[in-house]
Every structure is written in C-alpha cells, then in structure tokens.
Design a protein around this nucleic acid. Structure first.
Lengths: 117, 117
DNA sequence: CGCTTCGTACGATATCCATCGTAGTACGGC
DNA sequence: GCCGTACTACGATGGATATCGTACGAAGCG
C-alpha cells in the first residue's frame, strides 16, 4: 500500500518506518559509492533512474548498492516502465532521526569541497 | 605531537584532523558495539578506561573495536598507568562535520528509547 | 621479585561484502 | 512477434571484519 500499484507490478520490499535502524543507515552511507548516490539524490530533489548515475562500477554492482540503500530504508524504489526510480525517504528519516540527513549531507559536501571535489 | 609524550611511553597512532574521513567515521559507528561505546563516552563527558565498559564481547574483541574507533578518528586514546583512557574527539569532529556528532548521538538516543532501551 | 590487573599480539575462523561477468526477465516501441 | 533498453539473478572471488582463545607485555603493589 505504500506504493499504489498503479503503473508498476513488480514490487520491491521496503522496511517500514519503524523498522529502519540507525546502524543500517550508517552502514549504508559508509560506502563511497552509496554516499555519492545519496548526495546526487538529495541535490536533484526529484526521483532519478538508476541509469542516470555515472558510477565507477558495473551495472551489477550498481544494482547491489541501490538494494542496500533501499533495504536500509534510505531510499524508496519503484519501477516506472523499464526504469527503476529512486527517491530519498526524507520524511521517514527526518521523523526517526531529526536533522541527521541534513547533517550528513552537509558533512559529505564539506568533505568533498575540502578534498579535490 | 598531538599527544605530548609526558607520562605514557607506548604511543598510539591517531589520524590527524584532516585525515579523518566521513566514510570511515560512519563505518566505525555502524557497529552496535562501537556505537554504544561512543554513546557512553559522550554521556560521561570525561575519559573512560576500556575496562569500564560492559560489553557483550571478549576483551580481544573490545580491543579491536577501540582500535577501529581510534583509527577512524572518532576517539583519542592514551595510556595512563596500566589503563588505557578513551575520549571523544569532539573538537576535531565538530570542526570537520559541524553538528554531526550531536545529531548522531541524538539519533542513537532516540532509537534506544524507541526500542526497548 | 612474584602476583595481579589491564590490555596487546597473533592466529584461526566464519561471515559479510564489494566487485565482476554472464545469462536472463520485464517492459516499451517498431 | 522481435529487438533494444533497463535492470536482475546467480555464481564466483578476493578482501574486509567480528569474533574468539591463548599467550604475552607493561605497570603497579605487596
């Protein structure tokens, strides 16, 4: 019910809000590839397809990283045609851990600026 | 030079402030045992000896977790007599990632309260 | 000097995990 | 129906890592 079965059909398992664990979120964000995905997702406020990311790994690995992010509760995924759309679960994360997402994004941005972009 | 070689003798390698990486910090905190250590360390504002923690692992494993925390830049360690003292690197973390530590601690506290303490 | 306490080092182990390649499925357009 | 695009599933692999036990080192106390 979280995602109305309007267009899609293949549905993806997401943790409910109260199943999201801080440790899992931190683990998900401790990988450079996944942290970058989340940064891009936060910048472009809308949903993005997996294929719109330019990542230094193969597609198999990309699938893996998106799944980790979804299963930890950081992103929401749904199919739209052949594309798989990804969106940050801002509301859920803000409700569980107020301010954390913004802090993390700011920290990531600062570090990216501090090092060679 | 960060730690004056006053009393101790065995010295422990710490990353300099600008060597601390967000990914490493998040990885360090994504382990339940280490997250708990950091919470206790933040509550008791002073330095604590390794032996003052009651953790559900053996001493070998405890040593391992404290080393991960130190090498990621989250804590500072030094010997005092036979004890090894641990302190949060608040200043360094706040300088690099403003507000992040407090956000994380608040999030951890909230989650602990939400679940069965 | 012996004993105790605190922590380390080292090896073993089992698990997790990031990565890849190949083969396959789902959907949309022609 | 057929093809291409987008993503997945599965298996393999190599590298972390969480855990332990045992043996050792360093500091203080009697």
């Amino acid at each position: 019910m979280t995602t109305a079965p309007a267009a899609g059909s293949r549905d993806l398992p997401h943790p409910a809000r109260d199943e999201i664990r801080l440790e899992a979120v931190l683990h998900a964000l401790s990988d450079p590839v996944r942290l970058r995905i989340v940064q891009e997702l936060a910048a472009d406020r809308d949903e993005l397809a997996c294929s719109q990311f330019e990542l230094p790994v193969t597609k198999s690995t990309t699938t893996h990283h998106f799944r980790v992010l979804r299963e930890s509760g950081v992103i929401r995924q749904c199919y739209r045609g052949t594309a798989k759309m990804n969106g940050l679960r801002r509301e859920d994360l803000d409700a569980l851990f107020p301010g954390l997402l913004d802090c993390l994004l700011a920290a990531a941005g600062r570090q990216a600026a501090r090092l060679g972009d």
